[in-house]
Amino acid sequence: MQQQETQKYSGILVYGSHNDEGPSEGMLELLGEAGRLQRQMDRPCRVHALLIGDDVQRFAPELGWNGADEVICIEGEAYRDYRPDLYIDALEAAIEQVKPEIALILATVQGSEMASSAAVRLRTGLAAHCVELRFDQDAYVQVVPAFAGKILGDIYCPDTRPQMATIKKGMFERAEVDSRRTCRVRMLEVVNSRAFDPIRLISSVRDQKTEDVDIGSAEVVIGGGLGIGSKEHWEQLEQLASLFHGAVGCTRPALDQGWTEREDSMIGTSGAVIHPALYMSIGISGAAHHTCGIKDPKLHIAINRDPHAAIFATADIGVAEEWDTILPLLIDRLAQRKEA
C-alpha cells in the first residue's frame, strides 16, 4: 500500500442514518463511541457528524447534544431518497473535506455499500461490523467478528487514512444528552462527477410498523426459537413481553416458520444487535449466529429442555425444562403484579 501522509488526517467522522423525525438511535450510538475515542486521544480531535438528505440541517442541534463538534450537511432534493451513486459521492466528498483519521459508518444496508465504495475511492481500509474500537499504545484497533462471531480479529490499518469501520446498531452506547452543547454546522456542496444518470428510483416502500417496542432499545427482550413449536404458542411470548412493555425477538428458524412477521426482530449476525437489561431466551439452542447479537444483558435467563444446549454457556440463569411448563406460570404470576 502506498503510504499516505497519515498525520494530515485528524478527527472522527460519523455517518449514520435518520428518518423524518431525527437522527437514528444507531447514529447517536456511533457519536457516543466517537466521544469515547476522542477522550482517549492525546491529540486534538473533533467529532464530525455527517447528514445527507433533504432538509436535514434541522437535525444538527440534536447531533451536537449527543457529542458532535461539527455537523456537515449535504442537502438537497436530489438526496431525498437514497441513490447509491449520489450518496457515495457525498460520503467521499465529506471525507475529502474533513480528512478524518477515523470514520465510523452505521452498518445499515445503504451504509455498508457506501462505506465499501468510498473506501475504494479513498484507497483505504475498511473493517466490517466492528464490535470494539480501541487504542493499543498509539495504534487504533478495530475488532471484527468472523465465523459468526466464533472468533474475533484485531484489525489494523497502519498506512492509510481514514481508518474506516462499519458498525451495527446496538453495538455501542450513546452519550448522555447535553442540551447545552452546541456545534458548528457546515454546508457542503457536492459535484456529482460519478453519478450514473440513468439510475432511477422507481418506488420506495416502507412496511407498516406496528406500535411495538423497538427491539434495539428495549430494556426487556423475550427471544423465541424453534423450540416454541407453533404460531399459537408464539403468542405466549408476546404476552410475556407485554407484561414488561418489552419486545419479542426471534431466531432465524422461528422467522422462517412464519411465527412472527417481523424480520427486524431477528437477533444475530444477520439481524439486530440487542442490549437489554433482561434477555430471556426460550427454546433457543444458542448458535453463535444468534448469540453474537446479544450484547451485555444484565441478566440472561435461558429456558431450554436440553440441558446440554449451548445457550446455557452464555446465560446467567439456566432452566432446563420444557418451556411450556414454566412460561404459563410466569405469565400468570407476573400479570398479577403491578409496579410497586
Partner: peptide, 23 residues
C-alpha cells in the same frame, strides 16, 4: 490496507446458575 494482527475467541465469562425444583 488492513491486516489482522491477532485472532482470538471472545470471552464468555458468564457463570450460569441452573435452577432446579418443581416448575
Amino acid at each position: 490496507p488492513t491486516n489482522v494482527k491477532k485472532s482470538f475467541v471472545p470471552e464468555r465469562s458468564r457463570t450460569s446458575v441452573e435452577l432446579t425444583g418443581a416448575p
